[in-house]
C-alpha cells in the first residue's frame, strides 16, 4: 500500500520549509506501514489526473512564482479534474495563491492561476506577518485548531459561499478582515500558514493521508494514533504565540 504524491515545482517553491510538510506526511505514513512515494513535477513535466493521490505545492519568492505561474495555470484542467476525482491537495502560501484564479502584484502585473480555489489575490500595501491560530471543522462535528506563521502581502478574497480552511482565532488570515483563512474544495486545502504547518498540527497531516488513501482505495481508512507528545507541545507554544502577540504589520 503506497500513497503516490506529486510535489509541484519543489526546486522553485520551497521558501518556508515546505519540505518539513513532506517529511511529516512521509514519516507518518511510514510509521503506519504505508508507503509514500514523491514524484517531483516541474515546468514541462506531465501531470496526469488520477496517477497521484496527493498533490503538494509550496510557496516561493515573487521571482520564482512568476517563473512557474504560466506552467501551473496551464495545468488548471488537470488539477481540477484530479480534485473532482477525490485527490487530496495541500497548497501553502504562494502555491495557495496560484491555485486561485489569479494573483495581481504591486506592479499591476497579473499572474494567471490554476482556478482550483474560488478566490482572487491582489497584493496589498502592508505585509501580514505573525503567528496565526485557526479553528477548523473539516469534517462536521470534528473541531481542531491549526497553529502556524503567516507572512504575505497578498490579500485573498474568497467568493461568496466558498469554504475557508478555518476561522481566524488570532492573526490576519486571507485578507486581514473577513476572519477567514485558507480555502477548501473537496479534499483540497490551501492556506497561508507555514511554519511549516504539519509538524505542529499532525491531525491535518493525518487527515490528508486519510483522504489520499481514500482516493487510492475507494474507502476511508482507520489511521491509528501515533505518540504526538512533542507535536502537541510545539502546537501549544505556537498557539500561545498567536494569542499573545498575534499578527503585526
Amino acid at each position: 500500500m503506497t500513497i503516490r504524491v506529486a510535489h509541484l515545482y519543489p526546486e522553485y517553491l520551497n521558501i518556508y520549509a515546505d519540505r518539513g510538510n513532506i517529511a511529516v506526511l512521509s514519516s507518518r505514513a511510514r510509521w503506519r506501514g504505508i508507503g509514500f512515494e514523491v514524484e517531483p513535477i516541474s515546468v514541462g513535466d506531465e501531470l496526469r489526473p488520477g496517477e497521484h493521490d496527493l498533490l503538494y505545492i509550496g510557496g516561493g519568492q515573487d521571482r520564482e512564482q512568476a517563473l512557474i505561474a504560466p506552467d501551473l495555470a496551464a495545468r488548471g484542467d488537470a488539477i481540477r479534474e484530479s480534485v473532482a476525482g477525490g485527490v487530496a491537495v495541500l497548497a501553502v502560501c504562494g502555491g495557495y495563491q496560484l491555485l486561485g484564479r489569479f494573483y495581481r502584484g504591486r506592479d499591476g502585473v497579473e499572474l494567471p492561476g490554476a482556478g482550483l480555489f474560488p478566490h482572487e489575490t491582489v497584493a496589498g500595501a502592508r505585509r501580514m506577518i505573525g503567528d496565526c491560530l485557526l479553528a477548523c471543522e473539516l469534517d462536521l462535528g470534528t473541531r481542531a485548531t491549526l497553529a502556524g506563521f503567516e507572512n504575505h502581502a497578498g490579500v485573498t478574497r474568497l467568493d461568496d459561499g466558498a469554504e475557508p480552511l478555518g476561522r481566524v482565532a488570532a492573526g490576519f488570515g486571507n485578507d486581514g478582515e473577513s476572519g477567514f483563512e485558507g480555502a477548501r474544495v473537496g479534499s483540497a486545502v490551501g492556506t497561508y500558514l507555514h511554519g511549516p504547518l504539519l509538524p505542529r498540527n499532525p491531525w491535518l497531516a493525518d487527515w490528508l493521508l486519510a483522504r489520499a488513501l481514500e482516493h487510492r482505495d475507494g474507502e476511508a481508512p482507520e489511521l491509528g494514533p501515533l505518540p504526538d507528545g512533542l507535536e502537541q507541545a510545539a502546537h501549544v507554544v505556537s498557539a500561545e504565540r498567536a494569542k499573545s502577540r498575534g499578527g503585526r504589520f
Binding site: 520551497n14 518556508y16 520549509a17 519540505r19 518539513g20 517529511a23 506577518i129 505573525g130 503567528d131 506563521f149 507572512n151 507555514h194 511554519g195 511549516p196 509538524p199 504565540r241 502577540r245
Partner: peptide, 14 residues
Amino acid sequence: DAIADGRDVSWIWD
C-alpha cells in the same frame, strides 16, 4: 524566537 532570532522559526526546517 525573539525579534533578533526571527519570530518565524520555519528556517530550521531548511
